[in-house]
Design a protein around this nucleic acid. Structure first.
Length: 681
DNA sequence: TTAGGGTTAG
């Protein structure tokens, strides 16, 4: 295109700027020079809009700022705002909005874009004044402005305000409805989300892929697989277009609801998958205790040519943590360091993996390396200290957190109280339990009461714990009574224990673990008829007692042991090792504690039952297959019994090894005939 | 010519 010709023909110039084809940046720059000469405001505004669409935002802004504003220039300002929001520069968009010259009167589009920027930033305060201006300008019923407000309020957790705006809208379209559906989902109100969807259909509005994402997420959250499947059926019958995002939400819903076959099928049939689709499927497996399958999928993803994203790594790390796969967890950590930036979610997952795999040192090292720590990361480190029996360290971290000006939350106090409890720091525990509401405004919830009851009971203060529960505003929940009951059992406060057991039985619990505890209490009190009653309830509840198992990682491979399982190729050697250790322990003064068998059995049988618990088999196997001095890490799905706890102390001395046992609640570090925890329970 | 959507940490 020859420039003199353009200058000569203003109409042609206008045509270039308004055509749907996008002129190149070089063309725009040349036009700019010519327009300054011809000084047409209208054309300058069009040029600025074209700059914005071409991504030259600075040029767009300076063009607008240097030419006189007019009502017609607002379209160009809108183009600039839209370009900033497309690029995720919401702060800049707001700055531009605030700097609008008075002559350029904002319209519906301007307000919509500005409010949308506030929504993305979660900035309610900034939004309020924009909303005021929009309403003054007569846009209070505008469907776009209102939808932007709906989005704003639901992102800021103000669903009440969203509902008010929604109810006042004279006209709603699919976007307004879907914003409400998604809003209720993220507010943790999936039932309301499904109700919204129903109302939308009654209103005669057809859903699309985006609406269905909200509906599907709601089904995932309620755990209602049937509704989920019927929604899926509806989508198929209506031939609804489902892109990769919508289909991923289906995969996620089926996986979360434990419908693995369907999840896999939907996933395999996707014409196009991305890293998020993979992550959704993998996390579904992990969350349903299928760590093995999750890791298989993670390996498949790693060799598929797609780069695993942080979501996939996080799920894989969780799987490693579940099964105590330290070697694999470490290699994932290495992979992440080489390729990704270590943000807080990843950092927390890695820290948690090290903690749960028994490697307290690596967890600490990681915590020190993360420069910008968020509250979740702090909480994870405090929890890590707590489960590893480092109550003083947990308390020091908590105080450091306060010094850093970060506000602790309910999870911080749960971890702190639990840490103090396991380390026998009673005075500190009582102090912080008291301060959490008075100083930090956090009302103790069920988990905090469980911790404080446990803390008191561990120090023998069962009556004080009982008094505390009596002073509660609301009736203690079963979980809280259970904490007190186990305190009674461990302190041999059988009379009080029987009262509490009675209370628990009245509420007819179906939890097999709770019933087992009740039954054990009655057994300790030698109330055999009551034992029978509790056992009958256990049988009636239909749930099977979870069999105890122990895992040990040897040379990067995981081995599983179950009591009385004879299938292991080294079974005979393992039995010999257990017996050999047993006789050496006895020489050193170890006495079998048959009180941990809550069955009415002969002593000889009780001894047999106690000596071959799965953790003892796993330790024997570990000793046989690793070189002297190697640390052993055992993972047990249930609690370690008091007898094994005693025995492992002796074993650590006899074989001169550090033995780390992770049970259902915490870690035990055995070394030189002692354990890191004060008492086993 | 503007408003809505997927996974993941304590």
């Amino acid at each position: 295109m020859r420039l003199p010709a353009l200058l000569a023909d203003q109409r042609r110039l206008r045509r270039v700027l308004s055509s749907s084809s996008s002129p190149t940046l070089a063309t725009l720059t040349r036009l700019h020079a010519l327009l300054i000469v011809s000084s047409s405001n209208h054309l300058l505004a069009s040029l600025a809009a074209a700059y914005a669409r071409a991504g030259a935002l600075d040029a767009a802004e300076s063009t607008l700022a240097t030419s006189p504003a007019s009502p017609s220039s607002i379209a160009a300002w809108n183009a600039l705002l839209a370009a900033h929001s497309r690029g995720g520069s919401h702060r800049t968009a707001l700055r531009v909005f605030r700097a609008l010259p008075p002559a350029a009167r904002p319209d519906s589009t301007t307000f919509t874009l500005a409010l949308s920027a506030c929504a993305r930033l979660g900035d309610l305060a900034a939004a309020e004044s924009i909303k005021g201006r929009a309403f003054e300008a007569g846009y209070s019923k505008d469907v776009f402005v209102c939808s932007a407000l709906l989005h704003l309020y639901s992102r800021c957790g103000a669903m009440g305000d969203a509902v008010r705006v929604f109810d006042g809208m004279p006209r709603r379209d699919r976007v307004s409805w879907s914003t409400m559906v998604a809003g209720f989902v993220s507010a943790g109100r999936p039932v309301d989300a499904l109700g919204m969807y129903r109302r939308m259909r009654e209103d005669g509005v057809e859903g699309d892929g985006v609406v269905m994402v909200g509906v599907i997420q709601a089904c995932a959250a309620t755990g209602d697989a049937q509704t989920g499947a019927s929604v899926h059926g509806y989508i198929l019958r209506h031939g609804m277009r489902m892109d990769v995002v919508a289909t991923t939400s289906l995969v996620d819903m089926y996986a979360k609801n434990g419908k693995f076959d369907v999840a896999r099928r939907v996933f395999r049939m996707m014409p196009y998958r991305n890293a998020v689709s993979w992550s959704a499927l993998i996390s579904g497996f992990v969350q349903n205790s299928h760590a093995d399958e999750a890791l298989d999928l993670y390996r498949e993803l790693s060799t598929s040519g797609l780069q695993p994203d942080s979501g996939a790594h996080v799920s894989a790390l969780l799987a490693c943590a579940d099964m105590g796969l330290l070697k694999l967890g470490k290699s994932i950590h290495g992979f992440i360091l080489r390729r990704l930036e270590l943000h807080c979610i990843l950092g927390t997952s890695i820290l948690d993996m090290y903690s749960k795999c028994g490697s307290l040192e690596s967890a600490e090292k990681l915590f020190d390396r993360v420069s910008s720590r968020d509250l979740v990361l702090w909480n994870a480190m405090i929890a890590c200290c707590g489960t590893h029996g480092r109550g003083h360290d947990a308390l020091a971290l908590f105080q450091e957190l306060n010094k850093n000006g970060i506000n602790p939350d309910h999870a911080t106090f749960a971890s702190l109280l639990s840490a103090l409890s396991h380390s026998g720091l009673v005075a500190e525990g009582k102090f912080w339990f008291d301060r959490m509401s008075k100083e930090f405004g956090i009302e103790p919830a069920e988990k905090h009461y469980v911790c404080i009851v446990d803390l008191l009971a561990r120090s023998g203060l069962v009556e004080e714990a009982n008094d505390l529960l009596a002073s509660m505003q609301t009736e203690p929940t079963i979980a809280i009574w259970v904490a007190l009951l186990s305190g009674c059992l461990n302190n041999k406060k059988l009379e009080l224990g029987e009262n509490i057991a009675e209370k628990i039985l009245e509420s007819r619990p179906e939890d097999i673990g709770v019933l087992a505890l009740v039954s054990n209490l009655y057994a300790a009190a030698k109330k055999w008829d009551k034992v029978r009653e509790a056992r009958k309830l256990m049988k009636d509840s239909g749930s099977k007692k979870v069999p105890g198992y122990s895992l040990v990682e040897v040379h990067g491979m995981r081995h599983m042991f179950v009591m009385e399982d004879q299938s292991h190729p080294q079974h005979q050697e393992i039995l010999k090792m257990v017996a050999k250790l047993d006789s050496e322990m006895r020489k050193m003064g170890y006495v079998l504690r048959t009180e941990f068998v809550y069955h009415d059995l002969e002593e000889g049988v009780k001894e047999q039952l106690l000596s071959y618990h799965s953790e003892r088999l796993a330790i024997a196997f570990g000793l046989l297959n690793t070189s002297p001095g190697t640390r052993l890490v055992i993972i047990k799905n249930l609690r370690v019994c008091g007898n094994c706890h005693d025995a492992i102390k002796y074993i650590s001395k006899i074989v001169d090894r550090e033995i780390v046992v992770r049970d259902a609640k915490r870690f035990h570090h055995f070394k030189d005939g002692a354990c890191s925890c004060r008492d086993y329970w």
